[in-house]
Design a protein around this nucleic acid. Structure first.
Lengths: 205, 205
DNA sequence: AAGTATACCGAACATATGTTCGGTTTACAA
DNA sequence: TTGTAAACCGAACATATGTTCGGTATACTT
């Protein structure tokens, strides 16, 4: 027979339980700082320790993680390191003065690799000139350092010694820097020093 | 008497062994990825398990590290915490169907601690119903799981089996879920299941 | 000299833990 | 229909592991 609490379910569901185990272990490690025991997993997923043990063996074979045999709490993910990169926070945009000098680096923020890459930098937005693009006062913008830009790119540019975030448009004889806020007018200049292009954005509530 | 291998040394060397234990544990964790057992330490330093156990208690008291009593290989340095925390990505908001089921967890995203805490979850925004709040289609929102909300909070709520992001207002006899987009009207309901509150946001360009 | 605290030991204990084994249920292919 | 493999179970085993206990040696204090 079967245990009272046993969940009767389809048997040929290869992989689903494995996936759940992976997720549970990741969560456990992330929260506890050390890996769960076989029975920890079993209890959490409503399985028998033996069943979990079997799955663990498979996952080990599949190379999903390392698990020293007969060694308690020894699960380690092969790709355990989260893909994080430290991006320096340079200062506030529209705060005046160029800010790419190293001296101005005050801190750095770890970001997932999908949202930034080496060489990027972060600026805290000041003001509402880009609000129609969903870029609010206090938001953090990740910039990719580059000196040129294409039409429509949102760039950080140096204007009259101030760094501002604007949309970039190149015309025949001049460049337009367009705010995304009807309150402000286009800035028309002959040339402009582009500091970087918008890569990603994040915000704290 | 004393054991053959026993190292005869000065007894009033308070701290030295403690220091060696700390260093050994750090090295072990750094190399193995999980913490050593009491006997691992004992063997490495030529001490008895009981002695190590005693030191461990002191170190725990001193706050050097955490060590869950009776839990194997559970030593964690207090300052060990990476500044990053893995937040699960649950799915798309407004994508229909409730999504807090574990099955839907597909991946997780590392975020700096300032932007999320354990227990938070991430949802990818679909649609433009919150655009006036700077929340765009495709943005990722970090939610804090909670079942209640206060006036003005931006919450994820379950409406007709769909998860949507709206501003929450409680009235006497009903609840208003207000989009931040003039194209859409307020949703007035008697009761609503709140899934969480907006914590932070990030966006990829 | 006696008392006391520290650092250590080995044995013993209880529990945690990884692992094995035979058996059951179900899906699916032959 | 039969056979087989996957997914699961409970019990049992052996070892690992945290912990306790009584005891010894040394240094320092009184």
């Amino acid at each position: 027979m079967f245990g009272i609490l046993r969940t009767v379910m389809t048997k040929a569901n290869t992989g689903i339980t494995q996936q759940r185990i992976i997720e549970y272990v990741q969560g456990f490690i992330s929260e506890q700082g050390y890996s769960p025991s076989v029975r920890d997993i079993a209890k959490a997923l409503g399985l028998a320790a033996s069943t979990v043990h079997e799955h663990l063996s498979h996952l080990r074979t599949r190379g999903v993680f390392t698990h020293e045999p007969r060694q308690s709490r020894s699960i380690r993910f092969t790709s355990e390191k989260p893909e994080v990169i430290e991006i320096p926070l340079l200062g506030q945009i529209a705060a005046g003065r160029p800010m790419l000098a190293v001296e101005d680096i005050k801190e750095s923020i770890p970001l997932p690799k999908e949202f930034a890459q080496a060489g990027n930098y972060i600026i805290k937005v000041q003001g509402d000139s880009m609000i129609e693009k969903g870029i609010h006062d206090g938001d953090y913008v990740v910039m990719h350092e580059q000196k040129t830009a294409q039409d429509g790119d949102i760039v950080a540019a140096l204007i009259e010694d101030e760094v501002t975030l604007k949309q970039f448009y190149k015309k025949k004889n001049h460049i337009i820097l367009r705010p995304a806020n009807l309150k402000y007018e286009d800035i028309k200049v002959k040339d402009v020093q582009v500091l970087g292009k918008l890569v990603s954005l994040f915000r704290k509530y």
